[in-house]
């Protein structure tokens, strides 16, 4: 058994929260620069430039990229030969989030009760997902997720015989519905397959993957490319004010499903999609 201490997890979560909030992901920054070169709409170009400039200022001054510093989503891939010592894993994660949001002057956006709306003032609890894998290491991934885009996400249980056009149509409709509100250009996390609950999890997980990587299955990778192309002909553009830059990346994760169903989930994420990871 390899022992991992409470403080190791807590410190790592804290550092990743800070990094994700201050430093734009390199894959997204690169996609923004590529889009700027290809963009023909003057206003779209100005907006893309301001997004790139914002990333520079945020990193230099240790200011949050976006004031919606999100609800923190944490994925832990835990090697089965690992044992956690010195306190509860959940508490280690939440303590790391609490310290980051306090020390980093990040906004506390979590309410304790969805109906009573009382702010916990610590940005905790985090949303924690765990997966048990082989080996003696822990892969820790942290993403502060903003709710302007989260609120525009959707899931649909399609018929198993749905055509490719119907599947794409649903995804395109969600992008159109998100419109200017959700801060385009977007990163799309798409889940296909699984069950009602797992498909949304896949969509969320897809946002963590670099937008430079394609789904390992050829037909899924092709669907990613087709969606990328079709969404960028919608003309929505940066902040919905026109242009050819509506998505920066489309990431699909898929899973086996039932003969009677075809679940599809779309997690909309803004140009300030933030995540950071570390192997412990």
């Amino acid at each position: 058994m390899r022992e991992i201490r409470f403080d190791t997890i807590k410190d790592a979560v804290r550092e990743l929260c800070l990094k994700a909030n201050f430093e734009m992901r390199s894959d997204i920054l690169k996609a923004l620069r590529t889009s700027l070169r290809k963009e023909t709409n003057d206003r779209a170009k100005r907006i893309l430039k301001s997004i790139i400039e914002n990333a520079r200022i945020a990193k230099k001054k240790r200011l949050a990229i976006c004031q919606d510093t999100g609800m923190v989503i944490v994925f832990l891939e835990i090697g089965q030969d690992v044992s956690f010592v010195g306190g509860s894993l959940k508490k280690a994660v939440d303590d790391g989030v609490r310290e980051a949001y306090h020390k980093g002057c990040l906004r506390k956006s979590v309410v304790e009760d969805a109906l009573l709306r009382n702010n916990t003032a610590t940005n905790t609890p985090a949303v924690i997902y765990t997966d048990i894998v082989e080996g003696g290491r822990v892969n820790l991934e942290v993403s502060p997720k903003g709710f302007g885009s989260e609120s525009k996400s959707a899931v649909k249980m399609l018929r198993p015989t749905a055509s490719m056009e119907e599947i794409k149509g649903f995804i395109l409709d969600i992008v159109k519905f998100a419109g200017p509100d959700a801060c385009p250009p977007f990163i799309l996390g798409v889940g296909i397959g699984g069950t009602f609950d797992t498909v949304t999890h896949l969509a969320k997980r897809a946002l963590f993957r670099s937008i430079e990587q394609r789904n390992p299955k050829r037909h899924m990778a092709n669907l990613e490319r087709e969606l990328f192309k079709e969404i960028n002909t919608l003309g929505l553009g940066p902040m919905g004010l026109g242009g050819r830059t509506t998505v920066l990346g489309v990431n699909i994760l898929d899973a086996p499903t039932h003969i009677a169903g075809l679940p599809v989930a779309v997690n909309i994420s803004c140009h300030a999609t933030r995540s950071a990871s570390k192997i412990i």
């Binding site: 907006i47 301001s50 997004i51 400039e53 914002n54 200022i57 945020a58 001054k61 200011l63 949050a64 990229i65 976006c66 004031q67 903003g146 302007g148 801060c183 940066p238 902040m239 803004c270 140009h271 300030a272």
Partner: peptide
């Protein structure tokens, strides 16, 4: 105002 550029 442009969203997601709060630092700027």
């Amino acid at each position: 105002a442009t969203g997601g550029i709060g630092a700027l």
